[in-house]
Every structure is written in C-alpha cells, then in structure tokens.
C-alpha cells in the first residue's frame, strides 16, 4: 500500500488559515489502512483545526467526507455536490488523490494534509516499512524476494557493501542490511549459488528516468 503521515499542524494551518469553510476529504484505501487519512483521522484533524481556529477567535466550518478512493475520478465526483459551499479542499489522501481532486476542481484551492511516504507493508500494529520503489523492472526473483532497490540504502545490485555489520546497515543499527537478508534467504532456499550470479547494471529506464509513466491496457481502453 501507499503509506503517508499527517503533515505538521502548523503547515496545514498555514494552508487553510485564509479560509472559513473547507471540505476535508479522507480516503478509504491505503491511507485508511496506514491510519493516516481514513474516516477516523479526518474526524481528529477536523476537531483539531476547528479548535485551532477557535483559539484565534475565528471559526472554521469543516465538511468531513471520506471517499472510497480519491485516485478515481468517479469517486471524486461525489464532492461535486459540496464543493460550492467550500472555500478550499484539504485532502487526506496520498499525492495521487490530492491531484485528482485538484484536477476535477480547477477553481478551488486544494491542499495536501499528508506527506506521502512510500509503498510499504505493515510490520506489526502501527508500524509500516518501505518495501517497493516502483522501479518498473522487478528483480525480486533474483534476490530471494527481498528488494535491494527499496531496502538497500545504496540500492546496490551486488551487495553487501563494506558498511554491513552483523546484518545491519551502517546508516543505522535499526536498518537491516538488505543484502544480509538476501543471503540468509537464499541460504534457507538452498540457492546460495544464485548469490554468485552477477546482476548486471540495472536498466533504470522503466523507472521515472523516462519521465512520468503511464500504463495502457488496450483491451480495457474504451
């Protein structure tokens, strides 16, 4: 899933301080699952913002709406009925959602309430870790299911580097060395020989080096 975190309140307040009526839009997908922008966080932020306004002797009216998915135009359409009563929109989705709303309502200021972080997985309740960079050319089949692109601080393809100590990365003892994990995993699979294979210099063109990417499924295109 795409993970995100709420922006500092100060920043959000800076964005919306000129306005009196906003729509606060949550998203029931990834950001709900990572507890950043679901119905609950919408409620909390709404209360907090209203209080911050009240403290300054101002009032803020907040229309709380949580969409099934902000990154689909059909869902965004649900906002149409409410948009005229709002001076601005504050989105609690990832960057995709914010942009989708901004596209739909070109006349309205749209602000992000979250910092979109990474594509990741839940480690345990309340803990998420980065797992994928979306490089467009997956090599997990070579690396025992552990991604050196996303999980090696240097993104090196034939690791580990000299900074790997006791299975940890030199940038922090809290960060696992991806290549150590890859080695352990290959060992468990009995595929130590794979480790010997040199991964050639990665072709980064499928990644964003070729500019913004697009997928077209011709069989689905109308």
């Amino acid at each position: 899933m795409i993970t995100a975190e709420r922006k500092p309140m100060e920043e959000i307040l800076d964005y919306i301080s000129p306005f009196q009526r906003i729509i606060l839009v949550g998203c029931n997908e990834c950001v709900t699952v990572c507890a950043a922008g679901g119905r609950k966080e919408v409620g909390l932020l709404s209360s907090a913002l209203q209080m911050a306004f009240m403290k300054d002797g101002k009032t803020l009216s907040v229309n709380e709406i949580t969409l099934e998915r902000q990154c689909d135009p059909e869902y965004v359409e649900e906002l149409v009925a409410h948009i005229s009563q709002a001076d601005a929109v504050l989105s609690m989705a990832c960057g995709c959602g914010v942009q989708e709303i901004a596209k739909r309502f070109p006349q309205k200021p749209v602000f992000p309430a979250l910092n979109t972080k990474f594509m990741g997985a839940s480690e345990s309740q309340g803990v998420w870790s980065e797992r994928c960079k979306g490089c467009g050319d997956c090599i997990l089949g070579l690396t025992g299911g552990i991604c050196p692109v996303a999980r090696c601080s240097k993104r090196i393809m034939n690791g580990p580097c000299g900074g790997s100590t006791n299975g940890k990365c030199e940038i922090s003892p809290d960060v696992d060395c991806a290549w150590y994990l890859i080695w352990e995993r290959l060992k468990a699979l009995g595929q130590e020989d794979k480790y010997e294979d040199i991964i050639e210099a990665k072709d980064w063109r499928p990644s964003w080096h070729g500019g913004p990417r697009k997928i077209i499924r011709e069989d689905l295109v109308e």
């Binding site: 709900t32 699952v33 679901g38 309740q125």
Partner: peptide
C-alpha cells in the same frame, strides 16, 4: 460498507 479490511481490529 465502511470497512477497509485493514486488519487493525484483528490485531487490536
């Protein structure tokens, strides 16, 4: 209808 199947309840 609201559930996002996020597993938070399952874990909590």
């Amino acid at each position: 209808k609201k559930c996002a199947a996020c597993l938070i309840c399952v874990r909590a």
